Simulated scan of single mutants.
Amino acid sequence: MIDVMAVRALVAVSQHGSVISAAESLGYSPSAISQQIKKLEKQAGGALLERHGRGVLLTERGLSMSEQGRRVLEELEQLEVTLLADPSKPSGPVRISAFSTACRGLVGPLIQKLEKEGSAIQLRVVGEDPEESVQRVASGEADLALVHNWNSVPLPIPEQLMVTELCQDRADVLVHRDHPLAQRGSVSAADLLDEWWMATPVGMICHEALMRMFSEMGILPKVRLFDPDFSTHIGLVELGVGVALVPRLGRAELPANVVALELREPAQRRDVKIIYRRSLSASPAINHLVSALKEIATTR
Protein backbone atom coordinates (compact mmCIF):
# COMPACT_ATOMS: atom_id res chain seq x y z
CA MET A 1 0.00 0.00 0.00
CA ILE A 2 1.24 3.49 -0.84
CA ASP A 3 2.17 5.59 2.20
CA VAL A 4 0.33 8.93 2.29
CA MET A 5 3.40 10.61 3.80
CA ALA A 6 5.49 9.43 0.84
CA VAL A 7 2.95 10.95 -1.54
CA ARG A 8 3.06 14.23 0.42
CA ALA A 9 6.85 14.22 0.13
CA LEU A 10 6.78 13.77 -3.65
CA VAL A 11 4.12 16.45 -4.12
CA ALA A 12 6.12 18.86 -1.93
CA VAL A 13 9.28 18.25 -3.97
CA SER A 14 7.29 18.90 -7.14
CA GLN A 15 5.97 22.19 -5.75
CA HIS A 16 9.22 23.46 -4.21
CA GLY A 17 11.82 22.17 -6.65
CA SER A 18 14.20 20.63 -4.12
CA VAL A 19 14.29 18.08 -1.34
CA ILE A 20 15.56 20.67 1.15
CA SER A 21 12.73 23.14 0.45
CA ALA A 22 10.17 20.32 0.54
CA ALA A 23 11.52 19.22 3.92
CA GLU A 24 11.28 22.76 5.30
CA SER A 25 7.69 23.07 4.13
CA LEU A 26 6.64 19.78 5.75
CA GLY A 27 8.72 20.14 8.91
CA TYR A 28 10.89 17.07 8.30
CA SER A 29 14.59 16.55 7.69
CA PRO A 30 15.85 16.29 4.08
CA SER A 31 16.96 12.71 4.76
CA ALA A 32 13.44 11.77 5.87
CA ILE A 33 11.99 13.20 2.66
CA SER A 34 14.61 11.38 0.57
CA GLN A 35 13.73 8.10 2.27
CA GLN A 36 10.05 8.59 1.55
CA ILE A 37 10.82 9.23 -2.13
CA LYS A 38 13.00 6.12 -2.28
CA LYS A 39 10.14 4.12 -0.80
CA LEU A 40 7.87 5.33 -3.62
CA GLU A 41 10.53 4.65 -6.25
CA LYS A 42 10.82 1.06 -5.02
CA GLN A 43 7.05 0.62 -5.34
CA ALA A 44 6.98 2.36 -8.74
CA GLY A 45 9.88 0.30 -10.08
CA GLY A 46 11.82 3.29 -11.36
CA ALA A 47 13.26 6.74 -10.62
CA LEU A 48 10.89 9.59 -9.75
CA LEU A 49 13.57 12.28 -9.36
CA GLU A 50 16.75 13.21 -11.18
CA ARG A 51 19.38 15.72 -10.13
CA HIS A 52 19.46 19.11 -11.86
CA GLY A 53 22.12 21.56 -10.62
CA ARG A 54 21.47 22.15 -6.93
CA GLY A 55 17.89 21.00 -7.18
CA VAL A 56 15.98 18.11 -8.68
CA LEU A 57 13.61 17.51 -11.56
CA LEU A 58 10.81 15.00 -11.60
CA THR A 59 11.00 12.27 -14.20
CA GLU A 60 8.01 11.66 -16.46
CA ARG A 61 6.82 8.98 -14.05
CA GLY A 62 7.45 11.31 -11.10
CA LEU A 63 5.41 14.11 -12.71
CA SER A 64 2.51 11.77 -13.38
CA MET A 65 2.58 10.37 -9.86
CA SER A 66 2.88 13.80 -8.21
CA GLU A 67 -0.11 15.14 -10.15
CA GLN A 68 -2.25 12.14 -9.25
CA GLY A 69 -0.94 12.32 -5.70
CA ARG A 70 -1.94 15.98 -5.40
CA ARG A 71 -5.50 15.09 -6.38
CA VAL A 72 -5.57 12.19 -3.91
CA LEU A 73 -4.37 14.46 -1.09
CA GLU A 74 -7.06 17.02 -1.92
CA GLU A 75 -9.74 14.31 -1.86
CA LEU A 76 -8.37 12.99 1.43
CA GLU A 77 -8.49 16.48 2.92
CA GLN A 78 -12.07 16.88 1.71
CA LEU A 79 -12.99 13.50 3.21
CA GLU A 80 -11.47 14.47 6.57
CA VAL A 81 -13.41 17.74 6.56
CA THR A 82 -16.67 15.92 5.79
CA LEU A 83 -16.21 13.16 8.35
CA LEU A 84 -14.67 15.00 11.26
CA ALA A 85 -16.16 18.50 11.19
CA ASP A 86 -19.29 19.46 13.09
CA PRO A 87 -21.06 22.15 11.00
CA SER A 88 -22.64 23.61 14.13
CA LYS A 89 -19.30 24.02 15.95
CA PRO A 90 -16.50 25.53 13.85
CA SER A 91 -13.27 24.57 15.57
CA GLY A 92 -9.67 23.51 15.20
CA PRO A 93 -6.44 25.12 14.02
CA VAL A 94 -6.44 27.24 10.86
CA ARG A 95 -3.21 28.51 9.32
CA ILE A 96 -3.58 31.94 7.70
CA SER A 97 -1.17 33.77 5.41
CA ALA A 98 -1.82 37.48 4.82
CA PHE A 99 -0.10 40.62 3.57
CA SER A 100 0.95 43.03 6.30
CA THR A 101 -1.77 45.67 5.95
CA ALA A 102 -4.41 42.91 5.95
CA CYS A 103 -2.86 41.59 9.17
CA ARG A 104 -3.46 44.99 10.75
CA GLY A 105 -6.76 45.90 9.11
CA LEU A 106 -8.51 42.51 8.83
CA VAL A 107 -6.79 39.68 10.71
CA GLY A 108 -6.39 41.69 13.93
CA PRO A 109 -10.13 42.49 14.08
CA LEU A 110 -10.85 38.84 13.11
CA ILE A 111 -8.89 37.52 16.10
CA GLN A 112 -10.66 40.04 18.34
CA LYS A 113 -14.06 38.93 17.02
CA LEU A 114 -13.30 35.23 17.53
CA GLU A 115 -12.19 35.85 21.10
CA LYS A 116 -15.38 37.77 21.88
CA GLU A 117 -17.43 34.89 20.44
CA GLY A 118 -15.51 32.36 22.52
CA SER A 119 -14.73 30.55 19.26
CA ALA A 120 -12.89 27.21 19.29
CA ILE A 121 -11.05 28.14 16.07
CA GLN A 122 -7.32 28.58 16.72
CA LEU A 123 -5.58 30.89 14.26
CA ARG A 124 -1.89 30.78 13.36
CA VAL A 125 -0.92 33.72 11.17
CA VAL A 126 2.13 34.50 9.05
CA GLY A 127 2.60 37.80 7.21
CA GLU A 128 3.68 37.43 3.57
CA ASP A 129 3.36 39.06 0.17
CA PRO A 130 0.44 37.73 -1.94
CA GLU A 131 2.53 35.61 -4.31
CA GLU A 132 4.05 33.70 -1.36
CA SER A 133 0.61 33.35 0.24
CA VAL A 134 -0.82 31.78 -2.92
CA GLN A 135 2.04 29.28 -2.95
CA ARG A 136 1.53 28.45 0.73
CA VAL A 137 -2.16 27.69 0.29
CA ALA A 138 -1.63 25.75 -2.94
CA SER A 139 1.07 23.59 -1.33
CA GLY A 140 -0.92 22.95 1.86
CA GLU A 141 1.35 25.00 4.13
CA ALA A 142 -1.54 27.38 4.88
CA ASP A 143 -5.28 26.80 4.89
CA LEU A 144 -6.53 30.28 4.02
CA ALA A 145 -4.90 33.46 2.77
CA LEU A 146 -5.73 37.11 2.32
CA VAL A 147 -4.19 38.36 -0.91
CA HIS A 148 -4.47 41.36 -3.17
CA ASN A 149 -3.71 42.39 -6.70
CA TRP A 150 -3.31 45.94 -7.94
CA ASN A 151 -5.33 47.03 -10.95
CA SER A 152 -1.97 47.31 -12.73
CA VAL A 153 -0.43 44.02 -11.48
CA PRO A 154 -2.26 40.67 -11.96
CA LEU A 155 -1.94 37.87 -9.40
CA PRO A 156 -2.09 34.33 -10.87
CA ILE A 157 -4.15 31.93 -8.72
CA PRO A 158 -4.15 28.16 -9.41
CA GLU A 159 -7.43 26.47 -10.38
CA GLN A 160 -7.51 24.29 -7.25
CA LEU A 161 -8.01 27.38 -5.08
CA MET A 162 -11.35 29.00 -4.30
CA VAL A 163 -11.43 32.80 -4.55
CA THR A 164 -13.81 35.08 -2.63
CA GLU A 165 -13.77 38.80 -3.40
CA LEU A 166 -13.59 40.69 -0.12
CA CYS A 167 -13.17 44.43 -0.69
CA GLN A 168 -11.36 47.05 -2.75
CA ASP A 169 -8.59 49.16 -1.28
CA ARG A 170 -7.20 52.44 -2.63
CA ALA A 171 -3.75 53.91 -2.24
CA ASP A 172 -3.02 57.59 -1.64
CA VAL A 173 0.13 59.62 -2.19
CA LEU A 174 1.40 60.86 1.16
CA VAL A 175 3.31 64.15 1.33
CA HIS A 176 4.52 66.48 4.08
CA ARG A 177 2.06 69.28 4.86
CA ASP A 178 4.64 71.84 3.69
CA HIS A 179 4.97 70.14 0.29
CA PRO A 180 3.92 72.35 -2.66
CA LEU A 181 1.23 69.81 -3.63
CA ALA A 182 -0.22 69.38 -0.13
CA GLN A 183 -3.19 71.67 -0.76
CA ARG A 184 -4.16 70.10 -4.09
CA GLY A 185 -6.44 67.36 -2.74
CA SER A 186 -5.58 65.05 -5.63
CA VAL A 187 -2.60 64.50 -7.93
CA SER A 188 -1.62 62.52 -11.01
CA ALA A 189 1.58 60.62 -11.71
CA ALA A 190 2.66 63.47 -13.99
CA ASP A 191 2.68 65.81 -10.96
CA LEU A 192 5.18 63.54 -9.18
CA LEU A 193 7.94 63.04 -11.73
CA ASP A 194 10.65 64.80 -9.71
CA GLU A 195 9.80 63.41 -6.28
CA TRP A 196 11.95 61.16 -4.10
CA TRP A 197 9.98 58.05 -3.12
CA MET A 198 9.78 55.54 -0.30
CA ALA A 199 9.10 52.10 -1.79
CA THR A 200 8.69 48.47 -0.80
CA PRO A 201 11.60 46.21 -1.84
CA VAL A 202 12.09 45.00 -5.40
CA GLY A 203 10.07 41.85 -6.02
CA MET A 204 7.13 42.82 -3.81
CA ILE A 205 3.83 43.36 -5.60
CA CYS A 206 3.44 46.90 -4.16
CA HIS A 207 6.86 47.83 -5.58
CA GLU A 208 5.79 46.68 -9.03
CA ALA A 209 2.59 48.74 -8.75
CA LEU A 210 4.66 51.88 -8.05
CA MET A 211 6.95 51.17 -11.01
CA ARG A 212 4.04 50.62 -13.39
CA MET A 213 2.48 53.88 -12.26
CA PHE A 214 5.17 55.69 -14.22
CA SER A 215 5.80 53.12 -16.96
CA GLU A 216 3.51 54.71 -19.54
CA MET A 217 5.60 57.88 -19.30
CA GLY A 218 8.76 55.89 -19.98
CA ILE A 219 10.49 56.69 -16.68
CA LEU A 220 11.13 55.12 -13.31
CA PRO A 221 10.47 56.90 -10.01
CA LYS A 222 13.47 58.03 -7.95
CA VAL A 223 13.52 55.78 -4.87
CA ARG A 224 15.32 57.02 -1.77
CA LEU A 225 14.49 54.13 0.54
CA PHE A 226 13.35 50.51 0.19
CA ASP A 227 11.48 49.11 3.19
CA PRO A 228 8.60 46.59 3.44
CA ASP A 229 6.86 48.48 6.26
CA PHE A 230 4.47 51.26 5.26
CA SER A 231 4.77 52.68 8.79
CA THR A 232 8.41 53.46 7.98
CA HIS A 233 7.32 55.20 4.79
CA ILE A 234 4.87 57.35 6.75
CA GLY A 235 7.52 58.22 9.32
CA LEU A 236 9.91 59.42 6.63
CA VAL A 237 7.20 61.43 4.88
CA GLU A 238 6.60 63.06 8.27
CA LEU A 239 10.27 64.10 8.26
CA GLY A 240 9.80 65.67 4.83
CA VAL A 241 12.44 63.55 3.07
CA GLY A 242 10.19 62.08 0.37
CA VAL A 243 6.71 60.94 -0.66
CA ALA A 244 5.07 57.51 -0.55
CA LEU A 245 2.25 55.51 -2.11
CA VAL A 246 0.41 53.96 0.85
CA PRO A 247 -2.82 51.89 0.84
CA ARG A 248 -5.67 52.84 3.13
CA LEU A 249 -6.31 49.35 4.53
CA GLY A 250 -4.68 48.92 7.92
CA ARG A 251 -3.31 52.47 7.83
CA ALA A 252 -3.21 54.16 11.21
CA GLU A 253 -4.29 57.76 11.69
CA LEU A 254 -1.75 59.91 9.89
CA PRO A 255 0.54 62.28 11.82
CA ALA A 256 -0.40 65.96 11.73
CA ASN A 257 2.46 66.73 9.32
CA VAL A 258 1.40 64.11 6.75
CA VAL A 259 -1.25 64.78 4.10
CA ALA A 260 -2.98 62.09 1.99
CA LEU A 261 -3.63 63.08 -1.62
CA GLU A 262 -6.03 61.09 -3.80
CA LEU A 263 -4.17 59.64 -6.77
CA ARG A 264 -5.77 59.91 -10.21
CA GLU A 265 -4.39 59.20 -13.66
CA PRO A 266 -3.70 56.44 -12.89
CA ALA A 267 -5.71 55.63 -9.77
CA GLN A 268 -4.12 52.83 -7.80
CA ARG A 269 -6.61 50.27 -6.49
CA ARG A 270 -6.14 46.76 -5.23
CA ASP A 271 -8.72 44.01 -4.94
CA VAL A 272 -8.52 42.13 -1.64
CA LYS A 273 -9.48 38.44 -1.83
CA ILE A 274 -9.75 35.36 0.35
CA ILE A 275 -8.32 32.14 -1.07
CA TYR A 276 -8.41 28.56 0.19
CA ARG A 277 -8.24 25.08 -1.33
CA ARG A 278 -11.41 23.69 -2.92
CA SER A 279 -10.97 20.62 -0.76
CA LEU A 280 -11.73 22.83 2.28
CA SER A 281 -15.01 24.18 0.88
CA ALA A 282 -17.07 22.16 3.37
CA SER A 283 -14.95 23.12 6.39
CA PRO A 284 -17.12 24.84 9.03
CA ALA A 285 -14.06 26.72 10.33
CA ILE A 286 -13.12 28.06 6.88
CA ASN A 287 -16.72 29.06 6.10
CA HIS A 288 -17.05 30.79 9.47
CA LEU A 289 -13.83 32.75 8.89
CA VAL A 290 -14.92 33.79 5.40
CA SER A 291 -18.24 35.09 6.76
CA ALA A 292 -16.50 36.92 9.61
CA LEU A 293 -13.98 38.54 7.26
CA LYS A 294 -16.79 39.73 4.96
CA GLU A 295 -18.50 41.34 7.96
CA ILE A 296 -15.27 43.02 9.07
CA ALA A 297 -14.51 44.25 5.55
CA THR A 298 -17.76 46.23 5.41
CA THR A 299 -16.49 48.39 8.28
CA ARG A 300 -13.05 49.15 6.84
Rank of each mutant, 00 (worst) to 15 (best):
I2N: 09
I2T: 11
D3W: 07
A6K: 02
A6W: 05
R8Q: 10
R8M: 06
R8L: 01
G17D: 04
G17Q: 06
S18Q: 01
V19M: 03
A22P: 00
A23P: 01
A23E: 01
E24Q: 11
G27A: 07
G27V: 08
S31K: 05
I33S: 04
I33N: 03
K39H: 13
G45V: 06
L48P: 03
L58A: 00
L58C: 00
R61M: 02
R61S: 04
L63M: 00
S64R: 01
M65A: 07
S66W: 02
E67H: 02
L73I: 03
L76Q: 08
E77V: 09
E80Y: 13
E80K: 15
L83W: 07
L84I: 05
P90W: 00
P90Y: 01
S91Q: 11
A102T: 06
A102I: 05
L106C: 07
K113D: 13
R124V: 08
E128A: 15
E128Y: 15
E131L: 10
V134T: 13
R136V: 07
E141R: 15
A142H: 07
A145G: 15
A145C: 15
V147H: 13
N149M: 06
W150P: 02
I157E: 08
P158Y: 10
T164S: 11
Q168N: 12
D169C: 08
D172R: 14
H176V: 02
R177C: 10
R177G: 02
P180W: 11
P180A: 10
G185A: 12
S186A: 15
L193Y: 01
L193N: 03
A199H: 01
M204R: 04
I205F: 00
C206L: 03
H207C: 04
E208S: 09
L210C: 05
P221S: 08
D227P: 01
H233T: 09
L236H: 12
E238P: 04
V246F: 12
L249T: 04
L254R: 14
N257Q: 09
A260S: 15
A260Q: 08
L261F: 13
E262Q: 14
E262S: 14
L263H: 08
R264A: 10
P266A: 05
R269E: 14
R269L: 14
D271K: 15
D271N: 14
I275H: 14
L280V: 04
S281H: 12
S281P: 07
S281A: 15
S283D: 12
L289R: 06
L293G: 07
E295L: 07
E295R: 08
